[in-house]
Design a protein around this nucleic acid. Structure first.
Lengths: 233, 233
DNA sequence: TGTATTTTGTTTGTCGACAAGAAACCGCGA
DNA sequence: TCGCGGTTTCTTGTCGACAAACAAAATACA
């Protein structure tokens, strides 16, 4: 974390909020700040060397995206992961995968495709390097690039929210053990790119749905595994 | 708006932001604040008799919901209605109508149904009274109640956003002339309620799609009418 | 007269401070 | 030892003030 001299890094005006927002967001999505952890404003202000006002503003934004929960007159905490309603998450992300991939097949430009391929390359590299954290992040960016290519800001917004939430669920299990990163996802992504490039809407839909089913199945199996570990006799 | 004595209404702590948020939101959705109108913080602070801080916080929340746009270091303005990408709005709201109505048919409780019927009653009353403003608002609440009954917070969030946006589009045309409020919507709503109550998913889907088609067609016809008005020779 | 530059003014972004609630703490009594 | 009321402390919500950034007006110059 390297602090010490407190460099007082003369930030440009207006960049403060964005900076805090980015830091907080990353720490929440990578579970450095675990769900339920309280966020103290003054402490954060000291750590990031700025006033409470920009911190507060960033927190409001994060609350709007559902990443933190603000208890009135009480501390704001990192939003909990709701395992009881996990099915609503699965339902929604499956639908968004399908819809955005379909739209990407219809409306993508050459630049969109290049960006999608870039993200896929980064994803493949992360899987090859057995870097779970990078894999999770680049998987999110891959699907976000597809959503962008679909040119529907409403779907894009919901997709971002769901993908971020998914990052947290995945991070829960790919913490330290870098074993058996699912290389099949790389191939599935390649197939999706091919379908999009061919502007094959029906095939894009099918692939997106299968891909979503894969992820759902994996998270569920991870959940089940976790449950067994918690049983003690 | 009756000012004058500046009653200094001792608000409870923490209610300030919510108050400002509500006022701003209503004025934006009812087009009292037209799209593109600049929002001056200090002016608002004077009008609502509070500091700039809560106003700022409310603006951040509104920006998160896409109702205002914040230009950095410049005034924040009421978000524009993007007629060029109206089709993305139609696409998204049709999908949300279908999905939430389907889910409502599956998961609704007796209380949900009662709430939906309440909103429908208010909608019918507004149509009977030829009160366009009330009709627009209660139509939004009707579909929001259905979304709530669907028990999926992700769909619910996107639906709210789309319904609010729709309020602005509709308000554009139902400004003063209270002529021919479409009474057919009342019947369509009734049919949807019947399908939901019968837990008939397929029929709910069909009705929701037809209802969405109706609204899309109406907005498009209003748009065309408006365009003709704007042509000058 | 038109254009570049300085000056002025207005609005936002950030700061430190203060007051209101809520939680933690303490003392007292049973 | 436990429960209860009051007090203290800690955190948030709100405020007024100041400085930076941008826009517009005023000025200088060709």
């Amino acid at each position: 974390m390297a602090s010490g001299t407190a460099a007082k890094t003369e930030r440009k005006r207006g960049s403060g909020v964005q900076y805090v927002y980015g830091v907080l967001r990353d720490e929440i999505l990578e579970l450095t700040l675990p769900p339920g952890a309280p966020i103290d404003e003054v402490q954060l202000a000291r750590r990031l060397e700025m006033s409470r006002t920009p911190i507060r503003e960033a927190l409001v934004r994060l609350a709007g995206e559902g990443l933190v929960t603000t208890l009135p007159n009480r501390s704001t905490v990192v939003a909990n992961l709701d395992f009881l309603n996990l099915h609503t998450f699965f339902d929604a992300i499956t639908l968004m995968y399908r819809v955005t991939t379909r739209l990407a097949a219809q409306y993508h430009t050459a630049d969109d495709l290049a960006l999608i391929r870039d993200e896929q390359a980064r994803f493949a590299r992360a899987v090859a390097a057995h870097d779970a954290l990078a894999m999770i992040a680049s998987n999110r960016d891959f699907h976000a690039a597809i959503a962008t290519a679909g040119r529907n800001p409403y779907y894009e917004g919901l997709s971002h929210r769901l993908l971020d939430e998914g990052r947290r669920y995945l991070r829960l299990y790919y913490a330290g053990f870098e074993d058996r990163l699912p290389a099949r996802y790389v191939q599935e992504h390649e197939d999706m790119i091919a379908a999009i490039a061919a502007r094959d809407v029906a095939r894009s839909d099918t692939l997106a749905r299968q891909h979503a089913d894969q992820i759902v199945a994996q998270i569920q199996s991870l959940l089940a595994r976790d449950r067994r570990q918690h049983i003690e006799l």
